[in-house]
């Protein structure tokens, strides 16, 4: 599949299709995806059949959110190689863009989530213009600075509730089905971000980003408009994070600056993408599922101690020891990647 990427790089749509639906293993891949999707779509309807319904749906919603975040982060950090530790900013901006109309005017975040995403894109463009003047460690630091700047700003605006934030009303539907709308919203965000990531990976734009990741000067000499591309990648990678932020705040029934604007959330996205495989389509998805599962396991086993952080750390070290390119990246290099995980 890898050898066909040049064709798929936005040159020949026929080839993209040939890559997407080859005979044999490819069919099984789409089979797996279809079964998974149908299963996910039906999950919120399973209330009569599952004892731990609320817990299951909540956990799945959480997993889908992290899939959306890690996949989105990967568009900038994976493809173009620019590590952002400020992506939590977009989560917060999306959260507040949805929370304010709800708090003051009762407008449902399900209507404003898209606006949250677009606000994140707009911020991505502006922040990209400034931070992408730097490279390497300087870029990472400037994205952290962006995060702290927003924390400070949001904590000091009374209209936004300051440090206390804004309490939000719950969704006006039966308690039994309270979890379902958020689940579907996060499912849309997760699928949307995977599709976006796939589209970017298989476009000329994506090839340009990969060239930037390999050698920015060379990419420039080859005619890749590097500055423009990096900014667009930054903005695109913000969209679904913003949408997810809008949903997340609403599902928790409050927004608060310290909830969103933390390096820990940004770092989690990075961790997931790296463990799963930076620069691959499936990698961040695998990483997100793995980390959410491990976190949940340690929480249920050891209570809400900080031991899940320790376990995450050990997991990161172990995975990178055996899978230096992340799970998907390394398996592919060794040609051991099962077809249903090869989305590139």
């Amino acid at each position: 599949m890898i050898e066909d990427r040049a064709d798929a790089g936005g040159l020949e749509p026929e080839v993209v299709e040939a890559v997407a639906a080859p005979k044999g293993p490819g069919r099984s891949r789409w089979g797996v995806v279809a079964v998974l999707l149908v299963g996910l779509l039906l999950l919120p309807l399973s209330r009569p059949f599952i004892d731990s319904y609320n817990y299951t749906v909540l956990l799945a919603t959480n997993g889908l959110m992290w899939i959306a975040l890690a996949s989105s982060w990967n568009i900038l950090g994976g493809y173009s190689g620019y590590i952002s530790l400020g992506h939590a900013v977009f989560l917060g901006v999306g959260g507040y863009v949805a929370a304010v109309p709800l708090f003051y005017y009762g407008v449902s975040p399900f209507l404003t989530a898209l606006a949250g995403g677009l606000a994140a894109v707009a911020l991505g463009l502006v922040a990209g213009l400034i931070t992408l003047r730097t490279r390497g460690p300087a870029f990472i630091i400037s994205t952290i600075a962006l995060l702290f700047m927003f924390l400070l700003i949001f904590e000091n605006i009374d209209y936004l509730g300051g440090t206390a934030g804004l309490p939000l009303p719950v969704v006006p539907i039966s308690r039994d089905w309270l979890k379902a709308p958020f689940f579907y919203a996060m499912l849309i965000a997760a699928v949307g971000s995977i599709v976006l990531s796939y589209q970017v990976a298989h476009s000329k734009f994506g090839l340009g980003l990969r060239a930037i990741a390999e050698d920015e000067t060379k990419a420039e000499v080859a005619g890749v408009p590097t500055r423009f591309y990096k900014i667009i990648a930054f903005a695109l990678s913000a969209f679904w994070v913003g949408v997810a932020g809008a949903m997340w705040g609403y599902s928790l029934a409050f927004v608060r600056p310290t909830l969103f604007f933390t390096v820990a959330i940004s770092a989690q996205m990075v961790l997931m993408a790296i463990i799963g495989g930076r620069g691959t389509v499936a990698g961040p998805v695998i990483g997100a599922v793995l980390i959410v599962a491990v976190n949940e396991f340690s929480l249920t086993q050891f209570g809400s101690s900080e031991i899940n952080i320790l376990i995450s750390g050990v997991l990161l070290v172990t995975v990178l020891l055996f899978f230096p390119l992340g799970i998907v990246g390394t398996l592919r290099e060794k040609r051991l990647l099962p077809a249903f995980l090869d989305w590139d």
């Binding site: 890898i2 050898e3 990427r5 040049a6 064709d7 790089g9 040159l11 000329k204 090839l207 340009g208 990969r210 060239a211 390999e214 990419a219 080859a222 890749v224």
Partner: peptide, 11 residues
């Protein structure tokens, strides 16, 4: 170096 010959030419 990490792109295929074809991708290099495409670039």
């Amino acid at each position: 170096p990490e792109m295929s010959v074809k991708e290099n030419l495409t670039i």
